[in-house]
Design a protein around this nucleic acid. Structure first.
Lengths: 218, 218, 218, 218
DNA sequence: GATGAATGAGTTTTCATTCAT
DNA sequence: CATGAATGAAAACTCATTCAT
C-alpha cells in the first residue's frame, strides 16, 4: 500500500480546458470509487469513465491516492458546511438563546441529511482510513474540531445551569459524537435496516438530551 | 481453459503433528495481521513467521481470507465469552435483582477489557469489513445478537418501572452499543488519546445510565 | 474475496504501433507453439520471442489460450482458403463437367499442400483439442462443413450415375475424410515415415476413387 | 512436462497384500484418468479414489506417467487380444479359406467393440500421445504391427487374385487403418453423432471392400 | 510397508506508473 | 498537452515428489 506521498505537486493553474478535464476526472473518480470502492478501482476505470486518455490522468494527478484526497476533501467541505456538528451543535452559528434540545435535534437532522447525501463515499472513506495513515490523520483533525465545538457548547450549557455539572464535557462530546456517527454509519452504509429512519433519529435525539440531563431553562 | 474444480479444499489435519502446524499458522497469521494489516500481509510472511514452507500454508488453508476468518472467529469467540454485551448486559447470566446501573457498568468494563486485549485485531477486522461482504455479514450477525440481548434487558427494566417507557428499546440498544463500540474503537484502535481511560469509561457508564433514565428501584 | 469482474479484456489496438506489436506477438506465439507445443509454452517465452515486455502480452491477449485461438483461426483460414475439402472436393467452385476422379485427386493434393505447410501447428491443434472443449467444438464445426460439401458432391455423382447408389453419402464422406485427414496426420505430424510422399498420395486417390466405385462418365 | 523417465524401477514381487493395493491403484487410476483426463488428474485423486494414503502411491509407482503407462499397457493388451487388426484382419488366426469380405467385416466389428469398451481411455491415450514421446513411440509400434498384418493379408489376397494387383499393400493398409481408426475416434470419442452405429460400420465395411476391389473368389 | 505432512520451484496474472509519438 | 502503449515487479496458488513418524 504505497503511502500517499508528495509527488510532483499538482501543477496549480490550468488552461480553461485543462480545468474542465480535471473536473471531469474528479467527478468520474467519485463515481467509480462509490461504485467499486477504493481498492477495486483502477486508474483505467477513472480515465475511461471521464472519457479521457489513460495517460492524461497523470497529467492532473500524481496517483490514485491524490484524486481520492481531492474527492474526500470536497466531501468534508460539504459535510461541514451543510451540517452542524454531530452530537451537539455548532454554537457559533446559533443565537445563544435557542433551546439546547431543539438545537441538538436540528444538528442531528442536518448531519443525517449530509451523511445520507454522501453515504457511499463515507463507506469508501472508512475503507481508506483503515490503511492510509495520512488519511486517518485528516479524519482525526475533522473529528477533533467537531467534538471541540460540541464540548464547548456543553460547557456553556453547564454554566447556564442547563446541563448537570457532573458531566465531563470533552468525553461526553466524544462519546455522543461516536454514537451519532457510528449509528448513521451502520444505518446508511452497512444498511443495517434502513426502514423507519424517524425512529432512529428520534432515539438519537432523545438519548442525547437525556444523557446530558438537559432540563428546560429555569 | 476453465478447469472446473481445482481447489480440493484442505481438510482438517489428521495427525497430531498436522494439528500443531495448523495452530502455528493461525498464531503466526494473527501476529502478522496485527503487525501489517490484512492488505499488506503476504502469505509468504505468515509462512515464514510460522517457520513452515510456503506451500505448507496451503496444506491447511485455501487462501489468506481463510486463515483470517479462522483468526477472527476465535477472536469473536473470545470477545463474546469474556464480555457482557456492549451497551447493556447479558441478562440471562445475572440475577434479576442486580441493580441495572451496576450491571451496565460491569458490562462496559468487561467489554473494554476484551476490546483492549484484542485491539489490534479489531482494527484489522474493521479493515476487512470494508471490502469483504462475507465478513460484513458475520459482523452484522454478531452485532444483532448482542444488540438483541441489550434490547431485551431494556424491555425488562421498563416492565419493572426502572426505565422510562417512552424509550424505544431496540433503537436505543443499537445507538448505545454504537456509542460504546465506536468510542472504544477510536480510543483503542485509532489511539485518539489513550490516557486516562477511567474518564472515558466513567463517561460511557454515566451517559448510558442517564440516557436510559435509570432510577433506583422504587 | 471473490472480486467480480476484473478481466477488462484487452481491446483491439488503437494505433498503428499497437497493431504492429500485436502482430509480432501472434507471429511469436505461433513459432513458440510450434517449437514447444501448447503445454510447454510459457507466456514468458512468447513475450521474449516477440521482444516485448512480459506485461505487454496482456495488453493484447487475456491469456495463452486467447493467442492460441487467434493463431488457430488464421491457420484454419489458410487451410480452407487454399485447399479443397479433404476426401472429395468443393463442388461449387468447379465446373460440373470436370471428371470426379480428377477432382478428387486435385483436392487431395491441395489439402496435402496446405497440411504440409501447417503441419507443426496441426500437431499443436490436435494437442489442444484433447483438453479444451471450446476448441473441440471449433474443429467439429470445420469438419462438419467440409464433410457436408463432400457428401453433396457424392450425391450429385450418384444422381449423374457416376457413383453407385448403394453408398451412403454422408457416412462415406465422413469416413473418407477421416482416412485422408488421419493419414496426413500420421504421415506429416507423427512422421510415420515421410519418404515417398507420392506413393501415399496416389494410394489415397486410388482408394477414394475405388471406394466410391467411380466409373468414367457413361 | 517431465518426460516419463526411468525412476526407481517398480519393485517386482510383492506380498499378497501389496499386490492387491497395487491393483487398486491401477483400477483407480484408470477411472480417474477417464473422468478427468491425464492433465487434470492429480496423484492425490488417484490415491483417494483407491482409498490409499497419498504417499503409498509412490510405493508402487515412481510417477503419474508410470501408472498411466501400466493402464495403457493393459488397454492395448485388451485391444489386441479381443480384436482383429483394424482395416483388414489378423490372418494368422483365421483359416485361409474364409472369404476376405467376411473377414474384414468381422475384424471391423470386433475392433469397434473393443474401441467402444475402451473409448474413454482411448481419448486420454490420444491426449498423452500429443506430448509424451515415449508414449508416441509405443503407439507407433502397435500401429506398425497391426498395419503389417493387414498389409500381408492384402498381399496374400493379391497372390490369390482376389485383390487388384495395382494396389500398394503397405500404403493401402495404412490408409484403411487410418480410416477405421479415426472414424471410430470421431464417432466414439468426439461423439460426432453416435446414433445409428450400424450405418457407420456398414459404410466402413463397404468402403474397405470396394477400395480393395475385392471380388468373390473365382 | 503405510501414512500423511512438508517442500518450494514454477507459472499466471495484475496494474500503477512511465514513455514514446 | 493528449494519447495509449510499454514496463516489470509483485503475489497467489499448484502439485509432483520427498520425508518424518
Amino acid at each position: 500500500m504505497a503511502e500517499t506521498g508528495g509527488g510532483e505537486s499538482p501543477q496549480a493553474p490550468l488552461t480553461e480546458r485543462g480545468a474542465r478535464t480535471r473536473e471531469r476526472l474528479i467527478a468520474a473518480a467519485r463515481e467509480v470509487f462509490e461504485e467499486r470502492g477504493f481498492l477495486d478501482t483502477r486508474v483505467a476505470h477513472i480515465a475511461r469513465h471521464a472519457r479521457v486518455a489513460y495517460g492524461s490522468f497523470y497529467t492532473y494527478f500524481p496517483s490514485k491516492e491524490a484524486v481520492f484526497l481531492e474527492v474526500a476533501d470536497r466531501l468534508f467541505e460539504d459535510m461541514t458546511r451543510h451540517s452542524f456538528a454531530p452530537g451537539a451543535d455548532s454554537a457559533a452559528l446559533e443565537p445563544a438563546a435557542t433551546e439546547p434540545a431543539a438545537r441538538i435535534r436540528r444538528a442531528n437532522r442536518s448531519y443525517y441529511e449530509a451523511y445520507r447525501r454522501n453515504a457511499k463515499m463515507m463507506a469508501i472513506i472508512e475503507q481508506v482510513s483503515t490503511f492510509n495513515e495520512e488519511f486517518q490523520e485528516m479524519r482525526r483533525k475533522h473529528r477533533a474540531e467537531s467534538v471541540g465545538r460540541s464540548a464547548r457548547a456543553i460547557e456553556r450549557w453547564q454554566r447556564a445551569g442547563l446541563v448537570d455539572s457532573g458531566i465531563d464535557p470533552e468525553m461526553s462530546a466524544r462519546a455522543l459524537a461516536a454514537m451519532v456517527d457510528h449509528s448513521l454509519y451502520l444505518w446508511l452504509v452497512q444498511g443495517d435496516d434502513t426502514s423507519d429512519t424517524e425512529r432512529l433519529l428520534d432515539t438519537l435525539d432523545a438519548l442525547n438530551v437525556r444523557a446530558l440531563g438537559l432540563r428546560p431553562a429555569p
